[in-house]
Simulated assay, not measured.
Amino acid sequence: MKFAHVLGSLVLASCFYLFVFEDSASAMMDTGSRGSEVEHMQRVLEKLEYFHTTPTGYYGSVTKEAVRDFQADFGLRADGVAGTNTLNMLSNLEMIAHVVHGESRGEIYEGKVAVASVILNRVQSSEFPGSTYGVIYQQNAFTALNDGQYWLTPDASSYRAAKDAYFGWDPSEGATYYYNPSGVSDEWIYSRDVIKTIGQHVYAR
């Protein structure tokens, strides 16, 4: 599974994303925690289909069980405590969901998973930065970062696409590039070997 290969390269997302802590000791939430960070985590878990009630901002037994289920699926220590590794994984999924929503929200679901897969394929490639954050924030890597669509709120299907890509579904068949031929501004992209087309996106390596 792809998440096993990228877990070691996870980084705490900065600025907009999920959780920003001054030190790793504070990067933890558990039963009794409350506040906006807990509520945000609950909303992300809800879109990932782990949290099945209204987010409250309180870390109770329902949240603990949702975190435990998430951890078990992603190969993390399933203790129900939202520590550094768990928060990093959630942050990575959230970043990918933002790219998916910004770049492919009009595409069929397979196309959304393919866009998420390209991000993960880049993380694993020596030709790109070795972390989700590094890949997504690499200069001019994704149009959505440049035109602001990255900052739109992702829908649940964008989170599911990120999750499915982490679990190994790669409709792009190993692609590290994709583009919409009608919006190409740099013809260099045409030098890449085309793998397939899904919807309006051409996938290449």
Results as ranks from 00 to 15, higher is better:
Thr53Phe: 03
Gly60Phe: 03
Ala156Pro: 04
Tyr137Arg: 14
Asp193Ile: 07
Gly134Gln: 00
Ser24Ile: 06
Phe167His: 09
Gln138Tyr: 02
Val135Thr: 01
Val184Asp: 15
Pro55Glu: 01
Ala116Cys: 08
Val11Asn: 10
Leu145Pro: 09
Ser104Asn: 09
Glu39Asp: 11
Ile198Trp: 01
Tyr190Pro: 11
Leu7Ala: 09
Phe16Met: 10
Arg192Ala: 15
Tyr178Gln: 07
Asp73Gln: 07
Phe74Cys: 03
Leu90Trp: 08
Thr153Val: 15
Val38Pro: 13
Ala141Leu: 01
Trp188Gly: 14
Glu107Gln: 14
Ser91Cys: 13
Ser125Asn: 02
Thr53His: 07
Ala4Trp: 06
Gly111Glu: 00
Thr86Trp: 05
Gln200Lys: 13
Gly111Cys: 03
Ala144Val: 12
Tyr17Leu: 14
Ala175Phe: 15
Asp73Cys: 11
Gly148Cys: 01
Met1Gly: 12
Val202Arg: 08
His40Ser: 11
Arg77Leu: 12
Tyr50Ala: 05
Asp193Trp: 03
Ser104Gly: 15
Asn180Asp: 12
Gly8Asn: 07
Val44Pro: 13
Asn85His: 07
Val67Asn: 12
His101Val: 01
Leu76Lys: 04
Tyr50Asn: 12
Ala78Tyr: 03
Phe3Ala: 06
Phe21Thr: 14
Tyr203Ser: 15
Ser104Cys: 03
Met29Leu: 10
Gly8Pro: 06
Ala4His: 05
Asp23Cys: 02
Ser185Ile: 09
Pro129Ile: 02
Tyr178Ser: 11
Val44Thr: 14
Val184Leu: 10
Gly8Val: 00
Trp151Phe: 15
Ala78Val: 08
Arg77Ile: 07
Gly32Glu: 01
Lys64Glu: 09
